[in-house]
Amino acid sequence: MISRLDITPKALQLVEELEQKHGPLMFYQAGGCCEGTQPQCFEKGGYFPRMNDVLIGHIKDYEFWIDRDLFEYWQYAHFTLDVLDGFGPGGFSLETPLGKTFKIHYRLFTPQELENLEPVVRNS
């Protein structure tokens, strides 16, 4: 099965740092509003996905949810979690006090990949 989600080594290093400081984590990427579409990292249970939001995969063992409307737009794209120096538009994410911000790189799946994608889970 083809994964919908990946992580860069630099972002993985930050996730491990946040994990040591905060314990189990979770990720949520909204479709707009005050946090823009920046992926947010929370302590596990620190954010509650809405009905029909989509679990697209895991970073380590941590769930990565995206907004249901954002998924409709990006369902044919692979997500790669990366990190940049600086502050993103939201500031609610655990990496913000470290002067970092998570970012997603998107690429469209090939026709062959689309035939064998990992299934998603919708929040009910």
Rank of each mutant, 00 (worst) to 15 (best):
L12F: 15
L12V: 08
L12G: 15
L12T: 14
L12H: 14
L12C: 11
Q13S: 14
Q13N: 13
L14R: 13
L14S: 12
V15G: 14
E16S: 03
E17Q: 11
E17P: 10
L18G: 05
E19Y: 10
E19V: 02
E19S: 14
Q20C: 11
Q20H: 07
Q20N: 12
Q20I: 06
K21Y: 05
K21H: 13
K21A: 14
H22W: 02
G23Q: 10
G23R: 10
P24H: 02
P24S: 14
P24N: 04
P24I: 01
L25W: 01
L25N: 09
L25K: 02
L25E: 07
L25Q: 00
L25D: 01
M26C: 12
F27G: 08
F27C: 04
F27R: 11
A30S: 13
A30W: 06
A30E: 12
G31E: 07
G31H: 09
G32R: 07
C33T: 07
C34F: 09
C34V: 02
C34E: 13
E35T: 09
E35C: 12
E35F: 06
E35A: 12
G36Q: 01
T37Q: 09
Q38N: 15
Q38S: 15
P39N: 04
P39H: 00
Q40E: 10
Q40K: 01
C41M: 00
F42G: 08
F42D: 03
E43G: 09
E43T: 00
K44T: 02
G45Y: 00
F48S: 13
R50D: 14
R50K: 07
R50P: 02
R50F: 08
M51D: 13
M51E: 14
D53M: 01
D53V: 01
V54T: 09
L55D: 10
L55F: 03
L55M: 10
I56H: 12
I56L: 07
G57K: 06
G57H: 06
H58V: 00
H58P: 08
H58L: 00
I59A: 03
K60S: 04
D61I: 00
D61K: 09
D61T: 05
D61F: 04
F64S: 09
W65F: 10
I66H: 11
I66A: 15
I66T: 15
R68N: 03
R68G: 09
D69V: 04
D69M: 08
L70Q: 08
L70Y: 09
F71E: 14
E72H: 08
E72M: 03
E72I: 01
Y73R: 04
Y73H: 09
W74A: 15
W74N: 10
Q75K: 06
Q75R: 01
Y76S: 13
Y76I: 03
Y76K: 07
A77W: 04
A77T: 13
A77M: 14
A77Y: 15
A77H: 11
A77L: 04
H78T: 05
H78W: 01
H78Q: 04
F79N: 15
F79E: 15
T80F: 06
T80S: 12
T80G: 07
L81T: 01
L81F: 04
D82K: 03
D82C: 06
D82T: 05
L84T: 12
L84P: 10
L84G: 15
